[in-house]
Amino acid sequence: MKFELFYPQWKDRAVTFSYDDGQIFDRRLVDIFNKYNLKATFHLNSGTLDTEGFVKTQELKSLYQGHEIACHGVAHEYPTHLSQERLVQEFYQDRCSLERETGRIIRGCSYAFGEYDERVINTLKNLGFAYSRTVESTETVRSFADLR
């Protein structure tokens, strides 16, 4: 038996909005999205929160209310250049910090400089992420479940 999944109103495609780093510009962007009832995913670096030019930890819950928060690594490091231990630390610590500060379960991730890399993808899967976005085009949308 074959199943086809559709979006609301039987649409077969969707547009997604995805933004990285948690810069202060997100404040205005979120206001615009909220005004037009649009949703986005914001990939945050927990290590840059509360620093100049970035959003504050105390505003995460309210600022991104109604939008998805995802990991982007603690320090925005190049994951393919990290040892396995550092790679795990970079994303596990980011996830723990964001979950603690937002009270949400973080399911998604986009890793900095996003070239597709099996080691990085497998590590993120093993850390419990449901998906990760890269900047490299794969000509399709795939979840981790599709990468068997």
Rank of each mutant, 00 (worst) to 15 (best):
E77G: 02
E77S: 05
Y78T: 08
Y78F: 14
P79A: 08
T80M: 06
T80N: 08
T80L: 04
H81R: 14
H81V: 01
L82N: 10
L82W: 03
L82T: 05
S83I: 02
S83W: 10
S83M: 02
S83H: 03
Q84F: 12
E85R: 15
E85K: 15
E85G: 01
R86C: 01
R86T: 11
L87T: 01
L87H: 02
V88L: 02
V88E: 06
Q89C: 01
Q89V: 03
E90R: 09
E90M: 05
E90W: 10
F91L: 01
F91Q: 03
Q93I: 03
D94H: 01
R95C: 04
C96R: 07
S97E: 11
S97Q: 11
S97Y: 05
L98A: 05
L98G: 02
L98F: 04
E99K: 10
E99W: 12
E99V: 09
E99N: 13
E101F: 15
T102V: 12
T102R: 07
G103I: 07
G103N: 12
R104L: 14
R104Y: 13
R104E: 13
R104K: 15
I105K: 15
I105A: 07
I106N: 00
R107F: 09
R107D: 12
R107G: 01
G108K: 09
C109E: 11
C109F: 03
C109M: 13
S110D: 09
S110W: 02
A112F: 03
F113M: 10
F113N: 12
G114A: 14
G114M: 08
E115G: 05
Y116W: 15
Y116L: 07
D117G: 04
D117I: 05
D117Y: 03
E118I: 12
R119E: 00
R119H: 11
R119N: 13
R119S: 09
V120N: 04
N122C: 10
N122S: 15
T123N: 05
L124N: 05
L124I: 11
L124S: 08
L124Y: 06
L124C: 10
N126Q: 15
N126L: 11
N126C: 09
L127M: 06
G128T: 08
G128I: 07
G128D: 08
F129L: 08
F129P: 07
A130M: 14
A130R: 14
A130Q: 15
Y131V: 04
Y131S: 02
Y131N: 00
S132M: 05
S132K: 07
